[in-house]
Design a protein around this nucleic acid. Structure first.
Lengths: 338, 338
DNA sequence: CTGAAAGCGCTAACAA
DNA sequence: TTGTTAGCGCTTTCAG
């Protein structure tokens, strides 16, 4: 059975389409008798107004498009939850797409959104896009008056609302923490070294070192991609110097570093303390459980959605950037202060 | 700047809308001269055809709606990857929604899809929906001639294409495996006891017991919800009898069981062997790494998407149910065979 | 109380 | 080579 339309119902009753439309929308203009008959028939036939037609008419879709780089990253999952919560409360649907860190995929998705399918866009840049720092598709969207809110991985070259994590402060805070529990040589393992987030965390790290007059040693920084052999890189690192602390720039890398370090016979946290970013499931169940930086993903999602919906309703306000502070979740992978 | 339409461009050149449409679509009917001018202007103004209008016209959206119950479950994430891969290859966009195991949310999403927004639907039932086994919204979708493919968590009361995991066989296989490595009392911890998947796995478990003439002891089966206190339930279990093997019905529960068991002083795998379902990140990095059943989520996603796209193209074929076999991934949480 | 007509943005058959 | 018209499914004036 094909979808029933107003036309079909009108034909069935021998009345006009507009009469049916009014009857179904319970207009006072239609006689109770007809209204009841039409409504009953519509229910029976499972009539449902065609959204496409509605959207075309209203120039509004009541849906928000979301682009996240990587769904395996717990942080983004949490943000998604937050977005969905607020969106649903405000009567918006969300359609989520994964760019998978690819700028081509990101562009494709944005073009899809730009063609009238959504009322607004929420996005965190793919790493590749941050590298290139070209954002034509995104600028097109903004240019077409479709509100955009960027979160977490943002660009200074795009003018729009933003919600960011205070990553510099976080990097600074945890480095200080490690120094305070007695770590002298602190390494950083960074799988997202070219993203704004990765850079800021490193900047925070440097700032803390400076404050304690510890010279910055580039050999302690491991930037890697998925293709690199972590085990090998770690072996260089561990043979280079006595390392007392390691910062993993995301959750997965922190867990992997922990594995390698353990496999090489080091005790965590007695020999080496480890801190990672993102408070997800992995870090919690690993042995020892990892001390992590929580970015409050769900809260970020909520703020992002609120910002977007607010802008959809009141265009023309000046752009806003919200900064969300992180918290440190101390668990068993860091030495206790004596 | 509001979105540019054909009308705007037509007005700018003082030609008709259809001329502009043809020019932009590079029709041979239009003079080269005009075509070039119009195309240049369109590009300059970032013209993009309105998808809503197109979709309405073509009665096709080239998008697939996906509903998954829980994005924190690695299995579903993998399925999503598989779906997305095949869909993209065939020129389909996907819009994914999370039902969060709630049947109300599921219904809302299905109604959204049912209103002409997608060409087909891929779904795995929310646990609540499987409990109630009412699927009105879903039947409405099918009734409206929108193809549906159900995967993993399916219902016999819904007639459509399906892709399922051979969960009975998997439950059977791993129980036999545990028996063969010497486990006598094997417990099952089941957080999805009311889902088809959970039931089938338990059935496989029973089948294996029968085969080995081991009497089924309901006290060894722990059905629980998120609200239940796993630690407490496990303490009852472990005090009840000497347990040599535990089956965790999903990944997270297997990991949590491992934690509890370790915390209570048992050695895994020497005292107790543990097997879980779903080969995700967690089970890999936990200590000891967990022996798991892999359901080949990505492959399932691919098959599901293929089935759906095939049905969109050829409606009227008889419904099909594909069964995908699992594999056992032996790691360190199960005793080695002597 | 009911219907005709316009229009959302677009394409395609058909005229000119 | 260009324009007119109709129509996708719907709502909303404005007439009847």
């Amino acid at each position: 059975m094909k979808k029933v339309t107003l036309k079909d119902i009108a034909a069935h009753f021998g009345v006009s389409i507009s009469t049916v439309s009014k009857a179904i929308n319970d207009s006072y203009e239609i006689s109770n008798d007809l209204k009841l008959k039409i409504q009953a028939y519509a229910k029976e036939k499972h009539y449902k107004p065609n959204r496409l037609a509605l959207n075309l008419l209203n120039k509004s879709t009541k849906t928000i498009g979301v682009v996240v780089p990587n769904i395996l990253n717990y942080f983004f999952v949490q943000v998604l939850y937050g977005i969905e919560k607020v969106a649903n409360e405000s009567g918006y649907n969300i359609i989520s797409c994964i760019s998978n860190e690819s700028s081509a995929k990101e562009t494709k998705t944005l073009e899809f959104f730009d063609a009238g399918t959504v009322d607004g866009v929420i996005m965190s840049l793919a790493e590749e896009s941050q590298n290139e720092d070209k954002h034509e598709a995104l600028l097109d969207v903004i240019n077409n008056d479709i509100p955009v809110v960027l979160f977490d991985r943002v660009s200074d070259n795009v003018q729009c609302d933003k919600v960011v994590v205070d990553d510099l402060e976080a990097g600074y805070k945890i480095t200080k923490y490690l120094i305070n529990i007695g770590c002298k040589n602190i390494a950083v393992v960074n799988p997202i070294s070219s993203s704004s987030v990765g850079k800021l965390r490193l900047l925070g790290y440097k700032k803390a070192l400076e404050e304690f007059d510890i010279p910055f040693d580039p050999k302690l920084i491991i930037n890697l991609t998925i293709k690199d052999d972590l085990d090998l890189l770690m072996s260089f690192l561990l043979n280079y110097k006595t390392i007392e602390g390691i910062i993993g720039i995301d959750e997965l890398i922190a867990v992997q570093v922990l594995q390698v370090v353990k496999a090489r016979g080091y005790n965590v946290p007695n020999d080496i303390s480890i801190i990672g970013f993102t408070n997800g499931q992995l870090s919690k169940y690993v042995t020892p459980s990892l001390t992590m930086v929580s970015q409050h993903g769900k809260y970020i999602g909520e703020q992002t959605a609120k910002l977007l919906i607010n802008r959809i309703k009141n265009p023309g306000l000046p752009y806003e950037t919200k900064t969300v502070k992180t918290s440190l979740l101390v668990r068993d992978s860091t030495k206790k202060v004596e």
